[in-house]
Design a protein around this nucleic acid. Structure first.
Length: 268
DNA sequence: AACATAATCAACCGCCGCCAG
DNA sequence: ACTGGCGGCGGTTGATTATGT
């Protein structure tokens, strides 16, 4: 018995994609959008597994991919994020616009590992090379971020700084003495705030401009400051990373008139 | 020039979590 | 509550390219 395979292996192309296959995949996704990977190959006239199509699109064909060499800044960011998140490549990739988890994973294994070893740093523990223990600090932060985040009500905050005298301004702080980090100062903060009377979103995130609201909404605004407005029922999803400014990527008005804003980092 | 070895990276595989039925 | 399908993730493989001898 066991799980059925994701698709019929027979009569399926494998290996490198041809230009014609790429063209068909791009054309299909441009026409119908992403998703429905299982049925996509047949619909697009491709003799490929749905997973293979998804991977090809995400890792290679997506128009927003950056390609090209990693910058020094990206290197350091990856190192810092890895010290916090471990091998959670998709989470790391989410912080590097235009980069894919596969690309970062490969880059880590081929370049950054060597770079860290040359600095005398163990890429696994981010401690001194030769120390094979998994640091409690890394374990603690990674677990909080990845596994426990959904269990934490209302507010989640993770700070990571390499300055010994730096103080945390978030909900979760490190119990351990900070490890000697090699990367730039980094502040990884996620927060989900439910609306309260005393909720001051502008204290947490850089708010979107008031242009997101129409005139009626503006009249109903509960909070207004410096041209930024917040309604009583706002739900604020924020993300800070390092010195990068967190901006609103989209605003959704739900059926009960609540507004959900999505904030993304790295936008200037 | 020929061969061996190392480096790179696209693609595959199997597992897991989510969610609709 | 249970089950199966689906999408997503991380580890691994293997073909290709670069470099060294």
């Amino acid at each position: 018995m066991g799980r059925s395979p994701c698709c019929e292996k027979e009569h399926m192309n494998k290996g490198a994609w041809t230009k014609e296959e790429d063209r068909r995949l791009i054309e299909h996704i441009n026409r119908h959008g992403e998703g429905g990977w299982r049925s996509l190959p047949k619909a697009a006239g491709l003799l490929r597994c749905g997973k293979s199509c998804r991977l090809r699109w995400i890792n290679y064909l997506r128009p927003d991919l950056k390609r090209g060499n990693f910058t020094e800044e990206e290197d350091e960011l990856i190192i810092s994020l890895h010290s916090i998140l471990g091998n959670k490549w998709s989470l790391i990739a989410a912080r590097l616009p235009g980069r894919t988890d596969n690309e970062i994973k490969n880059y880590w294994n081929t370049h950054i590992k060597r770079k860290l070893y040359s600095r005398g740093i163990d890429p696994l523990t981010h401690g001194p090379s030769g120390d094979t223990r998994v640091s409690n600090r890394v374990k603690t932060t990674a677990d909080k971020t990845v596994s426990d985040s959904v269990k934490v009500p209302s507010m989640i905050g993770i700070d990571y700084v390499d300055e010994s005298n730096a103080s945390s301004n978030s909900g979760v702080t490190m119990a351990e003495e900070p490890a000697k980090a090699t990367g730039p100062r980094i502040n990884l903060e996620l927060s989900i705030g439910l609306p309260r009377e005393d909720h001051q979103p502008q204290d947490i995130c850089f708010a979107a401009d008031a242009k997101d609201f129409d005139a009626d909404q503006m009249k109903q605004s509960k909070y207004q400051a410096d041209g930024k407005s917040f309604r009583k029922k706002d739900v604020c999803l924020c993300s800070h990373l390092g010195s990068q400014i967190c901006t609103c990527s989209s605003t959704t008005v739900t059926s009960d008139s609540s507004i959900i804003r999505f904030y993304i980092p790295f936008c200037s």
